[in-house]
Each structure stands twice: as structure tokens, then as C-alpha cells.
Design a protein around this nucleic acid. Structure first.
Lengths: 228, 228
DNA sequence: CGCGCCGTTGATATTATTCAAGACCAGTGG
DNA sequence: CCACTGGTCTTGAATAATATCAACGGCGCG
């Protein structure tokens, strides 16, 4: 299953050597913790099946969702620099991850230029992705921000061969809200309004995007932003 | 001056070869553009003197500030994955940057393990930094968010041997607001209130942090967050 | 059936935005 | 030297958006 988790352009023979060394699969049940803030950073985890969230919990306050990872995505880059994880990670449903011990990976990469390249690409991709996410947070309007999130989700689904129209959220309203910096109730209301407007169909955690073009223009077009 | 821009742990002899190849200094006047969204990604820029901002401008809307880089920091990671810059960059004051052609750097790194390491560290650091920034955006209260920004700034100043108490902002209120997702007026009011509370002294763009501990607790302690 | 969790929705309070007026400041030209 | 001007910052009042509080409905499960 490792082959599925790792970039395809890794040459076959290298993959063989690689897999022999570090292949390691782990099953998670819903809610099960993958790592915690403060844990030593030992591995990256490729989500093979299911989905995973990351979060922080400020001692005083309530959990804040920091990231959401689905099939084919990689969790754990936080803490790669410091050697310790800076957030918690837990499965949102029964899931399977491939654990990739990072020290071994690095070690191996020293003698394998292609693998080196592969790691490098992972890092830069993650960098670009984070950049995108940060820009999305610039959207101030609650409804537009939510739509941006859903469209991002749709894009990621399409990439993985799933339907980009029929989304199944694995996050609760509260978790979405936390991730987006919105209140649970605000998320719910925004979804209702979007449904009333005929732009999507909402049934609990199943969302059908009825009018992607309009949704896109909603995000790009009329987001009131602070001046500069 | 390149030596100042690059990580110190690069072995001297390698640095020599490196510098000979790619050393390239560029002076920027206030407001001068370093690169634009859509430009081919050719180089990273180490800020040697002064400061630089990145921003996007959605066709419809107003400029949104995406990042702020000071002396000793590196701009341009956006677009490293796609080969094109995804945001604009301009000098906030008269500045000097070292341009580091990235293709050359990569090429060179193939034969220099230490340089390889160095690039690698740059990437992971940037990753960690972005992660931190994203978490800061989770802070919902305008005042607390602003304080978090100022404390981050202070930390970066200290790291660079500048005073962590007396800050000189290079961003206007509007730019700070744009970066933080707040209105200009909100930023101004928050600063006034913080001053009234005796936590800092504000004189235009000069800010003196009078009570860092209280400021820190303000960020961590009582930020009302959505539930999850 | 009753319970707990999740989601929706209303009423209200709080917070931030918007609009607008004026203060401050530096640069410029009379 | 002094107004003038453009930009930035502060502040007030009105408005809009979101959070909070709370009630209720649905659904799965013991």
C-alpha cells in the first residue's frame, strides 16, 4: 500500500529498497490519536484511507482545528523543523495511514537522488499549500470563507478521483467553525443561506454543490476586505 | 554581504564557491517591486537591510498583505513549487536584498551536502513558521490578534539583535489591518485601548511594549474562541 | 422510551466595519 | 515663514455582522 501513498515518480527499484526499509501501516479508529503536541517528531503519515485532523488546544480554551487531511495527503510536517510536533492529530473516522519514519527516510535519501527530489517536492508542495490556505483566511465574510473551504475540499476530492460535486464532510459544524474561525451557529446559518440561494444542497454532512461557478464568484467576487 | 544573508553553518570553503557563483545584491527603494504574481520564480531573496512585504490583489478588491519580512529573513518561497510567484512583493522602505538564483543553488547543492542541508533547513523552517502564523490567525479577538502580531515581531527583532521592546513598524495601520484581517480603524482603536491599559506606548509607528508578560497572557489567556 | 449528540434556528448582546470628521505631520511652493 | 496639500492616524456615531445563549428537532443507540 505504500506505493499508493508515495509520489509515483519514484523509480521502481528505489521504491523497492525504500519500502523494504520503512513500510509501516497503521490502522486508526475514529477519534484515535496519531500524535500529540510535544511528541517527538518521528514520522510523516500518509493518509491511505479515511481522514485525519490536526488541532491545538490552548490550555485555557477550547480545541482549535488546524488542519484537515484526506486520502492521499500527508500529515505531520509540523514539527519537522523543531523535532517535536506542535499540534495534535486524530482520525476523524476509521482510517489507515502509512507511517514514514523520517530519520530513515532522510538517511536513505542521501544515497538516492530521486528520493531526495521526492522529499524536496513534498516540502515545497506543502509550503505552497499552506500559502494558499493563509490567503483563504484573508477572506473576511463568513459565507465566502466557508464556500472557499468547500471549494478547496471539492478540488482535493477531484484530484483523488472522488466526486467534486457531492461532498461528504467528516468534520462537524463545530470543527469546521473552529477551522474557519467561525462560530458553529454561523457555519450552520451560512449553509442554510447558501441552500436557500440554490447554490448547494445541504443534508447534514452531505453537501451537493449545485452551482460551482456562482460559488466561485462568491468567493472571488464580492468578498468585502479591509483596505490597504 | 552574502555571508550575512545565509545560514552560518555553511562551511567556509563551500560558501566561497557558492558566493562566487550566485552572489548578487540588489537595492530597492521604498515601494519598489521585487516580483509580481505570475512572474517566473527565479530566485529567493534574503533581506539584508530594510523590510519587504508580500501581497495579493484580487482583481476586484483591495490589496491584501500576505507577509512581512525583515532583515535576515527570506522572501520568495511562494512559487517555489509551481515555478511562478503567487504573490507580489515590494520594499516597505529603502532596502537591500541578496538575490539567490534558485536553479543555480539547486544545481550547486547536488554536489554539496552541506548546502543541500542548508536548503532543506530553510524549507522546513519556513514550513514551521507558516504553521505558527496560521495558528495565530485562529485568534479571534481583534486586540489579541494584534498583540500576537506585535509579540511575533518583537521575537523576530530580538533574534536579530534589535530591541524587542521598542518596535518600529514599517507597515501602515491599513497594511497591518489587511495582514491581520482587521479594519484600519479597528487596529487603531485596539492600539489606543492597549495604550490606555498601560500595556504599551504608541506613537505613530513607534511602539514600546511596556508589559510583555501581560501582553502574552492576553494572547494566550482570554481569547474567546469558537467551540469544537 | 429516554438519552446524548448534532444540527438548526431565533432573540439578544457583543464586536467589528463603515462612514465621516478632524488632528497631526512632512513636504512643497508661494 | 507660512499656508497648502496629501497622506496617515485617531476617534465618534451609526450600521452590519457575528457570537452567544437558549430552545427545539432529528437521529442513532442502549
Amino acid at each position: 500500500m505504500l506505493a499508493l501513498c508515495l509520489p509515483a515518480h519514484l523509480a521502481a527499484e528505489e521504491l523497492g529498497a525504500f519500502a523494504r526499509q520503512i513500510d509501516s501501516r497503521r490502522d486508526l479508529r475514529e477519534g484515535e490519536v496519531l500524535f500529540r503536541a510535544g511528541d517527538a517528531f518521528e514520522a510523516l503519515y500518509a493518509v491511505h484511507q479515511g481522514s485525519v485532523k490536526t488541532s491545538i488546544l490552548p490550555e485555557d480554551g477550547r480545541e482549535q482545528v488546524a488542519g484537515y487531511y484526506m486520502q492521499g495527503e500527508i500529515v505531520g510536517f509540523d514539527g519537522i523543523a523543531s523535532g517535536r510536533h506542535t499540534c495534535n492529530s486524530a482520525a476523524l473516522e476509521n482510517s489507515v495511514v502509512c507511517s514514514v519514519p523520517f530519520a530513515a527516510l532522510e538517511q536513505l535519501a542521501r544515497t538516492m537522488p530521486l528520493l531526495q527530489q521526492c522529499i524536496y517536492r513534498m516540502l515545497t508542495r506543502e509550503l505552497a499549500r499552506n500559502h494558499d490556505i493563509m490567503l483563504q483566511f484573508g477572506i473576511r465574510d463568513a459565507q465566502a470563507r466557508l464556500v472557499a473551504f468547500l471549494l478547496d475540499l471539492a478540488r482535493r476530492c477531484r484530484r483523488r478521483g472522488l466526486s467534486a460535486r457531492d461532498l461528504t464532510l467528516r468534520l462537524s459544524r463545530a470543527e469546521m467553525g473552529s477551522y474557519l474561525g467561525l462560530n458553529l451557529a454561523t457555519v450552520s446559518r451560512a449553509l442554510s443561506r447558501l441552500q436557500d440561494a440554490g447554490l448547494m444542497q445541504v443534508q447534514g454532512r452531505h453537501i451537493k454543490l449545485l452551482d460551482p461557478p456562482s460559488l466561485k464568484s462568491l468567493v472571488a467576487g464580492e468578498s468585502p476586505r479591509p483596505q490597504a
